[in-house]
């Protein structure tokens, strides 16, 4: 692999290769839990935890694993970290665990995580893999934060539970319902491509 500067390894996850806006990976949690900012944050933290630790483990043990059983091994590693995150939330933050329901266990099938192991950690050094995982986690967090902020502000007039829009505002309930998730992300993708085209042209 051509080695990029480390800084670029980190920032690519934020914009150029943002897992959600660019690679369209991990759509299920993105759409499902962004009805409130608090859920988006909890989901981002849990996913980042799993991604970073899985990358660390996979990058450290990659030489020991025969390639025929690598996917199975990665899945077990990922599933172990997901279980830890799930049990931790259930034990110490029961309301959040209840809100997110099956979506925390579902991190195990989040394509971002297995995708990064297969595409990056299994081929790169531990340090580089960690930087990549941090970048991707931050990109994921950013996307969830933007999406959940838009949905919560328009759908409930609040941000993180605090009233931000005055009482004149009649909440668009549709935004916190499933259709709102699809519509917001669809329009957001369009806007991002538009911005990107502008950037390309000005270069």
């Amino acid at each position: 692999m051509a080695s990029k500067p480390l800084s670029q390894e980190f920032t690519k996850g934020l914009w150029g290769e943002n897992p959600i806006f660019r690679q369209l990976l991990g759509m299920c949690p993105t759409l499902a839990v962004t009805n409130a900012v608090i859920n988006g944050i909890a989901m981002s933290l849990a996913t980042s935890f799993v991604l970073i630790f899985s990358s660390l483990v996979v990058a450290s043990i990659k030489k020991l694993i025969p390639s025929q059983v690598r996917i199975a091994s990665y899945i077990v590693v990922i599933a172990s970290f997901v279980t830890m995150a799930d049990r931790f939330l259930a034990a110490f933050f029961p309301p959040i665990s209840k809100n997110l329901g099956p979506y925390i266990p579902l991190i195990v099938v989040n394509c971002i995580i297995l995708g990064r192991q297969e595409a990056f950690s299994s081929k790169n050094s531990v340090g580089r893999s960690l930087i990549d995982a941090f970048g991707m986690s931050l990109g994921f967090t950013l996307a969830l934060l933007v999406l959940s902020s838009i949905r919560e502000i328009l759908g409930a007039g609040t941000w993180l539970g605090h009233q931000v829009l005055g009482s004149w505002f009649e909440p668009w309930i549709i935004m916190i319902l499933p259709p709102g998730a699809f519509l917001t992300l669809g329009i957001l993708l369009g806007i991002i491509i538009l911005i990107d085209q502008k950037l390309q042209r000005s270069k």
Binding site: P179, F182, L183, L185, G186, I187, L189, G190, I193
Partner: peptide, 9 residues
């Protein structure tokens, strides 16, 4: 993807 998501919505 954009229009597909809007249609899904």
């Amino acid at each position: 993807a954009g229009i597909a998501l809007i249609v899904a919505g």
